[in-house]
Amino acid sequence: MKIEFRYHGKLSEVLGRNSEKLQVNSQNAGDLIRELILQKPQLKETTFQLAQKNKILKSEAPIEELDIDVFPPFSGG
């Protein structure tokens, strides 16, 4: 399936774009994180969480949406 990933915070800079569609096969969030890092090795050293339908996904959560938000923590203050 093709999922649109929306990158937030510094991830959009690391990847040079705010969003993109990627062909992925993962059925749950944990697998999807690993698959995303395989396709985007720049994310390997970063910390982030996936969200769908405005819910942060636990690793066993099934992927049901074709839009996924990718959020890093922010440190600035």
């Binding site: 910390t47 922010f74 203050g77």
Partner: peptide, 26 residues
């Protein structure tokens, strides 16, 4: 909690009435 990155910000309340903590999120 409040935090920033350039044009974006995050706010959340942690550890409130048995709610989650920052580590539950990240």
């Amino acid at each position: 909690h409040g935090s920033l990155y350039k044009y974006e910000g995050q706010v959340s309340v942690f550890n409130y009435q048995n709610g989650p903590s920052y580590r539950c999120l990240f």
